[in-house]
Structures are given as C-alpha cells and as structure tokens.
Design a protein around this nucleic acid. Structure first.
Lengths: 135, 135
DNA sequence: GCCGGAATTGACGTAAGCGTCAGTTTGCGC
DNA sequence: GCGCAAACTGACGCTTACGTCAATTCCGGC
C-alpha cells in the first residue's frame, strides 16, 4: 500500500504543451483555467504536470463551454463535484442549472426566431424597392 | 426662399433629457451615438438640440440594435443613407447586409438547437441518476 | 448678483476569456 | 559550463455599449 492518497490510475503525466495540443486549446487557456480555480495540476519545480484527473476535469470544462456555461458556472459544478463524493447534491444541482440553462436558451431561441422574421420581412421590402425602382 | 438648406418639416426641437425619455434610452447613450457619428444634433451654445431628422435617425438606430446590428453596422447604413439620395445603392447594400445577418442568425439557430438538444439529454441522464440512486 | 438644476466634456470602469508581450528561470544536451 | 528551447509570472490589450463619476459651465428665476 503506497501513499497515493488520490485516485490515479497509473501515470499519464503530460506537460502543458502536449496537453494543449491534445485538447485543442492554448497554454494560456490552461493557465487561465488554473488561475480561476478550475484545475490545479501538480508542480515539479514550477512546471505544471497534468494528471489523468486533470484531463478529465478539462474535458468537463470544455464540454461546459460548448454548452454555453460560463467559467464561473463550470467552476461551481466542479467544486460541488469535488465536495460531494456521493454525487447526489452534485447531480441535483447540475440538474437545476441545466434546466435553467434550457429555459434561458429557449428564450433566446424565441427571440432569435422573432428577429429572423423581422429581417426576412425587411429583406422582402428592400427587394421590392429595388425591383420597382430599378434604374 | 429661406436658407433652410436641410429638410426640416417644422420645428420640433427637443433637449437631450426629453429625447432620452421619449426613446427610452439614457442621455449617455445619445451622446455615445453622437461620439460614434450616428447622429449630430445642432448645438445652441453647447447644448444639443434634436431635430425631427435626428429623431428619425434614432428610430433607425434603435431598430438596428433590436435586430442585432452593431453600432458600426448601423453607422454604415446611415452613412450610405446620407450619401445616396436615390437610395438605390443604399437599399442594395442594406439587402446584402440583411441577408448576411439572416444567414448568421440561422447558423446561430442551428447551434442553439444542437446545444439545447444536448442539454435535454444531460437533463434526462441526471434525472435518471437521481431517481435510481435515491437515498 | 446669486443659486440651483441641467447640460457639457473627459476619462476611467465593467464583463468574459483569453491574446500577447516582456522579462526571468529551469532543464536538457553535449 | 553554455546555449537554447520551453515554462513561468505578471500585466496590459482587446471588444462592445454604454455606466458612472468628476469637474465645469450655462441658463433662468428672483
């Protein structure tokens, strides 16, 4: 029994350069997420070393981003995920947030629809102007 | 024949305060639009006086905003509108821009749809987790 | 001739998510 | 023991559409 107190299924420690390439993000982004408390890779005399766990968190972060969550919201998820091994409260909270986001996006959808409708109408009017006023 | 070289169907000159209230915008916004060349009200010893023409332009500006055009795009429209009394090029340009915007917004619509779909799936999964893992 | 309210012009602040230096340190290879 | 590549830490930049002071000026009323 060694002292690996954290889950770490074998080594897979990558440097920032490689991680950035793997995930398709910049090193700056990785440091930014760290500055904002989303990840906290080990340090070997300053240099960041990303474990498998860090990679998993990054996947969650990138997914959250794609889904339109802000950095703060994502951190909220991750924090709760960390503090709730049973995952009950975490899932519950996630569910709430996801539902809120769905409501939000559906509202955006309605607004978008309306705007597109107006634009199409404007387009028709403009096209008519052009045809009837053709020089 | 007087020297009113500009169109001005009768007086209707309002101060910034009244105009702001009428349009539901702040005075700061009005000054901002002026700084960005969207409107240029007369000055009476410094104080801004908004003519009917200015009001008309403000209506266009606000409409453009509602339709999701940026200040720059709106200025583009207004500039062309100013320089093209025949309105042919202006309408033509407007048409192009409107169509671009429609394409843009439709793309956003697709992306939104996709995102909402993913969120709904996540919602379902989370709900299931909660029900089956209920304490 | 003074007071108060309204208008004016800077100019910095805000939010989000990094981009982009600049200057320094570390580590590896030979 | 040196050089260069790579990593690090600030810290300011960017974009958009104004918000929010702050300091000044102007105008009407009494």
């Amino acid at each position: 029994m060694n002292q690996m107190d954290d889950h770490d299924p074998g080594p897979m420690h990558k440097g920032i350069q490689e991680v950035a390439e793997m995930l398709g993000v910049t090193q700056r982004a990785l440091r930014f997420y760290e500055d904002n408390g989303l990840i906290s890779p080990q340090r070997v005399s300053g240099t960041r070393i990303y474990s498998r766990r860090d990679m998993g968190r990054m996947q969650l972060i990138l997914r959250g981003k794609r889904l339109g969550f802000s950095i703060r919201e994502i951190r909220e998820f991750l924090d709760l995920y960390d503090r709730d091994p049973t995952q009950h409260d975490q899932i519950s909270h996630l569910l709430t947030r996801v539902r809120e986001k769905i409501v939000d996006l559906k509202a955006q959808q309605v607004a978008l629809e309306k705007t597109i409708g107006e634009l199409i109408q404007i387009e028709a009017e403009a096209a008519e102007q052009l045809s009837k006023g053709g020089a």
